[in-house]
Computed example of a mutant assay.
Amino acid sequence: MKQNFPRSGSRRLEHAVDTQTLGEELGAALEAGDVVILDGPLGAGKTTFTQGVARGLGVRGRVTSPTFVIAREHRSKGEGPTLVHVDAYRLLDADAGDADPLGALDSLDLDTELEEAVVLAEWGGGLVEQLSEAYLLVSFDRETAVAEDPESEARIISWQWMENRG
Rank of each mutant, 00 (worst) to 15 (best):
N164S: 04
A28G: 13
V118H: 01
G126I: 02
R155M: 06
A117I: 09
P6Q: 10
A147E: 15
E79I: 04
L57T: 05
D141H: 11
L136I: 08
W123L: 00
G56C: 07
H74W: 06
E151A: 14
L105R: 01
G78C: 09
I156Q: 07
S10K: 14
E129G: 15
M162R: 15
F68L: 01
E153I: 00
D141A: 06
G52C: 00
S10E: 12
E163T: 15
A16H: 09
A147T: 13
E73N: 10
A104L: 09
A104V: 09
G27N: 04
L30H: 11
R90L: 01
V128Q: 06
F68Y: 02
P41R: 14
G78N: 12
T47H: 02
G40F: 08
S76Q: 02
I37F: 03
E163N: 03
E153A: 10
R55K: 13
P66F: 05
E115F: 02
R142D: 01
S158T: 11
S10T: 07
E133G: 09
A88N: 03
V119K: 02
F5C: 07
L92I: 15
D149N: 13
E73H: 08
M162H: 14
G58L: 11
E73K: 13
V146A: 13
G9A: 14
L83I: 13
P150W: 06
I37W: 08
N4P: 00
N4M: 01
D111M: 11
G124T: 04
L26N: 07
A134E: 13
D100T: 02
I157T: 08
L30M: 06
E116R: 09
S8D: 14
D34A: 05
G103S: 08
A54M: 10
R11P: 00
A71I: 13
E14L: 10
V59M: 03
P150D: 12
T112C: 03
T64P: 01
V128L: 05
S65Y: 05
A145G: 12
L127M: 15
L131S: 11
V53Q: 00
A154L: 12
P101D: 02
L120N: 10
M162I: 15
D87M: 05
P81R: 04
